[in-house]
Amino acid sequence: MQKNNQNRNKMLMFYQKDKTFFQLVIIAVIVFAAVAFMKPEKFLTSENMLSMLAQFPQFGIMTFSVMLAMLLGGIDLSVVAIANLSSITAAFIMTGSWGQGKSGTVVILAGVAAAALTGAAAGWINGVVVYHFRVPAMLATIGTAQVFQGISIAVTQGKAISGLPGAYSEIGRLDMGGVLPIPFLVFAICVLALSFLLNRTTFGSNIYMLGTNRKAAEYSGLKVRAYTLKVFILGGILAAVGGLVMMSRTNSAKADYGDAYTLQCVMIAILGGVDAEGGAGKVRGVAVAVLIVQFIASAINMFPALNTYTKTLIWGLTLIVVMIWRMFSGASHRNR
């Protein structure tokens, strides 16, 4: 009896410590159970599970990029543009004359490296505009998004670049032993690496400090400039990874793939508990929010009678319900 009580107390403490996360997990379970109950023959199939695991990584990884900018109290509306510019760079290298006669692995690795560099450079530009020119992040990244997409359109003439090495597009289709799609593996690595970086390192805790109170961070001797640039560069690289995953699944790169992801990523980040004012938000919360959004999206496609607008509607409602719950349960730090 006593032991039971102890356990309960432990559980409660556990819940109290990160309400945001547990609320999200509960919602994910509810959504999952509801759909599984209504459409078991379609939703509870291994095909559907694998298909969902392969779908969310691309926008999930891009969401982390948005999340990083939001931790500093900013936002990044150029993620999708960076993702496309990076994957176009990779596609040029993978399909260009440079790769002729070289081994497939070398060509693919070179393309991936070039994409990461492009993403880093684009992120750096964002950081410079935000920090040095004091442009609000929202305006700055709307501007750079136009520039990045403009470059993409100019170099591709608006066409899709296809004809990637066969091995590369296999990445988007292959499952590891029929259980884990490779895009999901990439997503999992991003989650683990980013969790470690944000929760376990000084770099991470300084980002939270900077986002919570920039003045205080400055006075305590934090190099705000270096941190801003690094966060945006990291965000740019994550956007590039998202772009590479997207490229493996479309088997081509184009200036306007995934345009709709921009706002979707912001929404998922907020749903995942990232504070738009900066300084709060956990990777695990965002990861669960990504799952919730995918469950809803896939579920809608299983009901012939529901049209696409329902998806947007349900996403919006979920977001509002979560916000209200957070406010009443005291999980919102705005309330603290």
């Binding site: 479309t250 793939y257 345009d259 012939p304 009678a305 049209n307 696409t308």
Partner: peptide, 11 residues
């Protein structure tokens, strides 16, 4: 029945 995206986007 019809199922599609909310904008004309390949992804």
């Amino acid at each position: 029945y019809m199922k599609g995206g909310s904008s004309a986007d390949a992804s």
